[in-house]
C-alpha cells in the first residue's frame, strides 16, 4: 500500500510534467496542424534558462521563472517567423524535417551555451517532504502540481473567455473561415507558437530541481509528451492533461512492478496501442486520418 502510494506520487509528478508538455504539442497541432519535434528542446531551454537565471545571475525565483518562460516563448515565436512561415508548401514531411532540424540546432546551441554537464538546482522551497501513510511527497512535487493546475486553469479561461482565445479556436476549426471573418490568422499562428513553447518552458522550469537538467534532456521528454498528447486525443486540452497524468502514473507503476529498464518503452507501447485501437485518443474528436 505504502509502495503503491509512493509510486503514485512520483507518477503524479511526472504526469504533471508530461501533461504540460502534451498541452504544448496539442495546442500547436490544433491551431497549425503541425507537430513540433523541437518541442522537447524548448523544455530544455526552460530548464537550463531557469538554472542560469537563478544560479548564474542570482535572480529570485519568481522573476526568473517569468523571464525564462517569456524568453523561451519569444524564441518559439522567432522560430515560427524564421523557419515555419517561409515554407511555401507546408506538407507534413517538410515540416517534420524542419522541426527536427530545429531540434538539432537548439540542442547544439544548448551544448554551446551550457556545455555537456548536468546542472543541479535547489527546489523552489526547502520544506521537508510530507509524509502520507509512509509515502513521501516532495515539496517540489507540490509546487509542480500547483503550478500545472494554475497554468491549465489560466489556459482554459484564455480559450473560453477571451476574444483572442476564441479567435484561436476559430483558427483551429478552419483557418480560411477564420481569415474571412477578419481574424489575423498569421498573428494567431505566431501566438500559438509562443504559447506552446512557453508551456514547454514552464514544464522545463518546474522540473529543473528534480531532474539535473542538461542540454540533451529534451528529446525524450518531448517524445513522451507527444505520446501523452496522443493518448488524450491530439488537439484536446483536457485530453492532453488526462493523457499526461495517465502516462506518468502508468509509467511509475510499471517501474515499480515490472522493470525500470523498460520504463521508457511503456510510453511507446501505449502509443501504439492507442493508435491501433482508438487513434482519436481518449477524449479526441473523430476526425482521424485513418483510411
Amino acid at each position: 500500500m505504502q509502495e503503491i502510494l509512493q509510486y503514485l506520487f512520483s507518477g503524479l509528478t511526472n504526469g504533471a510534467i508530461y501533461a504540460v508538455i502534451a498541452v504544448g504539442f496539442s495546442m500547436l497541432y490544433s491551431s497549425t496542424d503541425l507537430i513540433n519535434f523541437a518541442h522537447g528542446e524548448f523544455v530544455m531551454l526552460g530548464a537550463l534558462g531557469m538554472v542560469s537565471l537563478t544560479a548564474g545571475f542570482g535572480l529570485p525565483l519568481i522573476p526568473a521563472f517569468f523571464l525564462t518562460v517569456a524568453g523561451v516563448a519569444a524564441a518559439g515565436m522567432l522560430f515560427e517567423r524564421l523557419a515555419i512561415r517561409p515554407v511555401r508548401h507546408p506538407e507534413p514531411i517538410v515540416l517534420i524535417i524542419i522541426t527536427v532540424g530545429a531540434s538539432i540546432f537548439l540542442r547544439g546551441a544548448g551544448m554551446l551555451i551550457w556545455g555537456k554537464n548536468s546542472y543541479s538546482m535547489p527546489p523552489f522551497s526547502d520544506h521537508p517532504p510530507i509524509d502520507f501513510a509512509g509515502a513521501r511527497l516532495l515539496a517540489q512535487s507540490i509546487w509542480i502540481l500547483v503550478i500545472v493546475t494554475v497554468v491549465t486553469a489560466a489556459l482554459h479561461l484564455f480559450y473560453r473567455r477571451t476574444l483572442t482565445g476564441k479567435a484561436m479556436t476559430a483558427c483551429a476549426v478552419s483557418k480560411k473561415a477564420a481569415w474571412i471573418v477578419g481574424i489575423p490568422t498569421k498573428w494567431m499562428v505566431l501566438l500559438a507558437f509562443g504559447l506552446s513553447t512557453g508551456m514547454g518552458a514552464v514544464a522545463g522550469a518546474i522540473i529543473s530541481p528534480i531532474t539535473m537538467p542538461s542540454y540533451d534532456m529534451g528529446t525524450m521528454l518531448g517524445l513522451k509528451g507527444f505520446c501523452a498528447a496522443m493518448f488524450g486525443g491530439l488537439g484536446s486540452l483536457w485530453g492532453a492533461i488526462l493523457g499526461g497524468f495517465l502516462l506518468g502514473i502508468l509509467e511509475a507503476l510499471g517501474v515499480g512492478f515490472v522493470s525500470s529498464g523498460l520504463k521508457d518503452a511503456a510510453a511507446f507501447i501505449l502509443l501504439l496501442l492507442v493508435l491501433y485501437v482508438r487513434p482519436q485518443g481518449i477524449l479526441g474528436s473523430a476526425d482521424v486520418k485513418r483510411f
Binding site: P92, M230, F268, L272, L275, Y276, V288, K289, R290
Partner: peptide, 12 residues
C-alpha cells in the same frame, strides 16, 4: 494509419 498518425506509429 496515414499522415502524422502513421509517422507517430512508426516512431513509436
Amino acid at each position: 494509419l496515414s499522415g502524422y498518425y502513421l509517422g507517430m506509429g512508426t516512431l513509436g
